[in-house]
Nucleic acid binder design. Structure first.
Lengths: 369, 369
DNA sequence: GCAGACACGGTAAGCGTTTGCCGCAATCAC
DNA sequence: GTGATTGCGGCAAACGCTTACCGTGTCTGC
């Protein structure tokens, strides 16, 4: 008959626990806990003994147990729409650095703009009891998230009204950057400026498009409906949208894109024609991903600093989570944008002949302004 | 005087727990637990009652408590070297999909090839008691990881000898893909083929370079030392390396790059000269990131399927974690590579004059083969 | 010198699970 | 009808931590 002892029951413990430290420092586990959590009332002599013991036995507090009893996991959820869009990894990295610096871990998920994925992602995050979630999808259905989480759950959205008690919003100033872009093009002499938007069910895509329209109007330019084409914030969509523009009777002399990936698709579409960038057509992106400066030609684009965005997101989340955060009541967090001029924009050529899509691989001459 | 009751002590519980379910189903918590964990010995009648109750109270098992008692967190660690390199987000996404399908969560971290970051990352993962870690950095110091984790800890490396009990290795067949690339170029008539490696402290970078040398030798070609330049697996390094090659007396007619980002940097460097791709010089990448086909011209590259890689990583990890995984003893997991020919490679032009770096922005003619 | 106040450390009660052990009831062999 | 066997559910003990409460020791004021 097997002897069923305590020892047998134990799965092999690999790390030291609070009792080991307590024994070694000749104090109670309460004192160890208080010391480790930097509660000020611990006698410095004991605290020293504790820290020494911690070091000696290599004690690392068990996060699961901590979370279990405290009800806080120190995990931040970060939801992005498409991790394979280079903007997001940059954002993720910044976010993570900041979160880790504050003692948080980050749980990342990308939704691919699929409500099903979004729902399961939120559920998974809730199940891991994240302390709060930043939704940086630029256009998720906010309602969907609200339905899944409690009314007091700390939430941060990029671009949305903070209509709930513990919801904060990142207010990206799209208007400013896009106005700068339009102004830049207008100053160069462009009049026929097209815009390729993101998928219009995304709130942000609509916001950017509207900012474009507004900027055009303010400068006394017209943005004909045919010059506003819907893309998908990906290279494929940018390419397709540009091809649509190319099929029109009168070509635009400049194209502003709702993000950089779209602009890359546009460059690609233009490469298959005889049109040169920027001599025949200027292209402006949005985001300023690192890749933008490595495009051929380097992309003029509206910079939305993901450092700034990440910082605002982390702080806004902390404001919702930590009861004594200084900016706790603040509900809106501004994020700036600004134009970065590179080499994909230039003076427009005189009047262009209407021109369909040229066959790919034709010889062409390329010259820069 | 405040009444310090049990009720007060409780932080507001927001989700139902196992006791609520047990009460409602009129069974013990043990039965609930067994039902939820699909232990077969539960009477179907009771099981039904339990499932019904679970549904009614909206019970979701608390992951922290589960992890605490079972010692398994159902979190997989995934370490990549640089999340902003587009190859990795693609890998991350695949990995995550597969892991989630198996009921795991993923904790991601990128090291930026910094040993300090690597160490803190591993520590953080251990603190969150991940069940295993896949190290896909293509060149991390394996020793560093071994020093931090216990000897039995489930680990998967891309490219490394499985010299420890619970370590598995993904064996990417670099040789095959690179051989195909060299062969492709040789068949087109190239003889002077250069190679831009990754940072040589990365094991994988060395492996790829050696594969290149071997392939060259096998085909009776020589790879002079001057034609092998070190890059950094980023665009910047690719650009710098290409500039080094351009400074040489006799230019190569083709360049193979250790990854696609390097190739993008190369294209960029060449764009600032009068040399055309592929007419004057052919360029081959490695990885086949999605962006590769959107380069100008679309990049011929060696595909390393990140789907395949992710699948191998997840399965290898599971083999190390789950005691009854079918492929548990398998130590090496093969991953194939193959050449994808696009438009950045072509026939070499006749003998080229030695040519330094031309000034940027010079007019140039571009023609495709 | 003594009562009261105060500071600080220890005890123990949870947090929400999993799981070994035990006991009850039902089944079976004879 | 009895005793042995089996199946299955409940009890309770962990897992490692935080923290309310309490007790002890020291200090202060009179």
């Amino acid at each position: 008959m097997r002897q069923t002892s305590k020892a047998q029951r134990n799965r092999r413990r690999v790390t030291a626990n609070i009792h080991d430290v307590a024994k070694r420092a000749r104090v109670s586990i309460a004192t160890v806990s208080r010391t480790v959590n930097r509660i000020a009332t611990v006698d410095p002599v004991l605290a020293n003994r504790v820290w020494k013991a911690v070091d000696e036995v290599g004690y690392v507090p068990n996060t699961q147990a901590r979370a279990l009893v405290s009800g806080r996991s120190r995990i931040l959820g970060l939801i992005v729409s498409d991790i394979t869009n280079p903007f997001f990894p940059e954002l993720v990295q910044e976010f993570e650095n900041l979160a880790v610096a504050q003692g948080y871990e980050v749980m990342i998920g990308s939704t691919s703009n699929d409500p099903g994925r979004t729902e399961s992602l939120i559920r998974r995050m809730l199940q891991r009891s994240v302390d709060g979630v930043a939704v940086m999808t630029f256009g998720i259905d906010q309602e969907q998230v609200h339905k899944l989480v409690g009314p007091e759950f700390p939430l941060v959205f990029s671009d949305a009204g903070p209509d709930r008690p513990n919801v904060r919003a990142l207010k990206v100033n799209y208007g400013e950057g896009i106005r700068q872009a339009v102004q830049h093009l207008a100053a160069l002499g462009h009049r026929r400026i097209a815009f390729i938007s993101g998928p219009l069910r995304m709130r942000t895509a609509v916001t950017r498009r509207d900012a474009f329209r507004k900027a055009m109007t303010e400068l006394g330019l017209v943005a004909p409906g045919l010059y506003i084409v819907e893309g998908d914030h990906k290279m494929e969509g940018g390419k397709a949208a540009m091809e649509k523009l190319l099929a029109q009777a009168e070509l635009p002399t400049a194209v502003i894109c709702s993000n950089d990936m779209t602009a890359i698709g546009v460059l690609h579409a233009l490469d298959e024609t005889t049109l040169k960038v920027p001599a025949d057509i200027s292209v402006v992106g949005f985001d300023d991903i690192r890749l933008a400066q490595f495009m051929l030609p380097p992309l003029t684009t509206v910079q939305m600093s993901c450092k700034e965005l990440a910082a605002a997101a982390v702080e806004a989340l902390r404001a919702g989570i930590e009861p004594d955060h200084p900016q706790s009541p603040q509900k809106e967090w501004p994020v700036a944008t600004r134009l970065v001029v590179r080499r994909s924009t230039g003076f427009p050529r005189g009047t262009l002949p209407a021109l369909g899509k040229a066959s790919a691989g034709r010889g062409r001459a390329k010259a820069r302004a």
